[in-house]
Design a protein around this nucleic acid. Structure first.
Lengths: 157, 157
DNA sequence: GACCTGAGTTTACTTTTCCATACTCAACAA
DNA sequence: TTGTTGAGTATGGAAAAGTAAACTCAGGTC
C-alpha cells in the first residue's frame, strides 16, 4: 500500500480496537480474568488499580460485550456480581498473546518468564503466530497490506 | 494457575510490554511505519498527533530499539533523519495483527475493513493465530497458563 | 548574506486522565 | 440496631495529554 495521497485512517481497525482496550488497566483486567479472577475485589487487590478506574473499565468492558456479569453467592452473604469473559473477549486472546510473547522475549527476568502458556493435553509451548488462510506460516515481511472495501483517501484540506 | 495466594504480577510480560507500547499514539506510529511512513512530518500529518508527543514517542521507540534512525536525502536539501523498524519492532507484528483482526471483526464499517492483509505471493488472507510448538492450532480455551521460572507469590502485606 | 525547509524543542494554557482516599449502599450476621 | 463486607460512587489534587504558536537549528537555495 503506497498511495502517495494520504490514506484516511479514521476507520483503521487497530485504532478502533485501541479505543476499546487501549486505556490504562483494561488489558491487565482481561489478563486477570484469564488467570481466574472474577470479582471486583480480586482485580483491585492484584492490580492495585484505583477503584474508580476499575469500576469504569469494567463498565466499559461489559458495555462492549467483552465481559459479562453473573452473580455469585458466598454462603452467609448476599449475592454479588462477578465478571466473566464472553466469546468477543476471547477473540482478544491472540492480541494479548502477542504482547505476552514480546515481553517474554525482550523484557523477562533473567531466569525467564513468570507464566508459561501450554497447549492443554499436548503440553507444548503456545504462542501467537501469523498464518495465512492456506495454513502457511507468514513472516512479517511477507505480509502485504492492500486497500480493503472501506479504504478511503483523505478529503483534501 | 489457580493459587489461592496472590500471584505477584510485577514481572508480568504483558504489563512490561504495555510499559513500552501502551501509551497513546505508540502503536499507531508503528502502524504508520508498517504502512510505509518514515518521516516526522509523515507521522504528524497522517496521525494528527501533537508534535511534542510525537517526538517523545519516537524517542522512546528508538531508545527501546523498536525503531532505528537512518538518514535520507532529497535532492536539493540536506540529509534528514527517518525512522525504520528493527527486528525487535517486527516482533510486535503478531500483537498488532491481533488488534487489527479484532477490530476487523467487531468494529469495521459495514462494507468491511479499510485494509486487507495478504500473504505476498500466495495472496491468501493473513491473520494472527494461536499455535503450539508442534504446529497445532490452539483454541483460547485450551491454553493452560502455568507458573514459569520467574513465578513469584506476593510478599505478605 | 538572507531566506527556506524539515525536524524538531519550548512555552503557555486547557482538558482529560489518573491516583488516593473517603464515603455510600444493600444485604446478612450478631 | 449495630456492625461487617463486597461493590461500588464521590471528590480533590497530580500527572499526562491535547492545542497552538513561537522559536531553534543546520544545511540547502536564491
Amino acid at each position: 500500500m503506497d498511495t502517495r495521497l494520504d490514506r484516511d485512517m479514521s476507520n483503521c481497525s487497530i485504532a478502533r480496537t485501541l479505543e476499546v482496550v487501549g486505556e490504562k488497566w483494561t488489558i491487565l483486567i482481561l489478563r486477570e480474568v484469564w488467570y481466574g479472577s472474577s470479582r471486583f475485589s480480586d482485580f483491585e487487590r492484584v492490580l492495585g488499580c484505583p477503584r474508580n478506574l476499575l469500576a469504569a473499565r469494567l463498565r466499559m468492558l461489559v458495555e462492549e460485550g467483552i465481559l459479562a456479569t453473573e452473580t455469585y453467592k458466598e454462603p452467609g452473604s448476599r449475592s454479588r456480581p462477578k465478571y466473566v469473559i464472553t466469546p468477543k473477549g476471547v477473540d482478544l486472546v491472540p492480541a494479548v498473546m502477542g504482547l505476552l510473547q514480546w515481553g517474554d522475549r525482550y523484557r523477562a527476568d533473567p531466569e525467564g518468564p513468570a507464566v508459561l502458556t501450554r497447549h492443554r493435553g499436548c503440553g507444548a509451548h503456545v504462542d501467537a503466530q501469523i498464518r495465512c488462510e492456506r495454513g502457511h506460516a507468514v513472516q512479517a515481511e511477507d505480509i502485504e497490506s492492500v486497500p480493503g472495501p472501506a479504504f478511503r483517501l483523505r478529503p483534501a484540506e
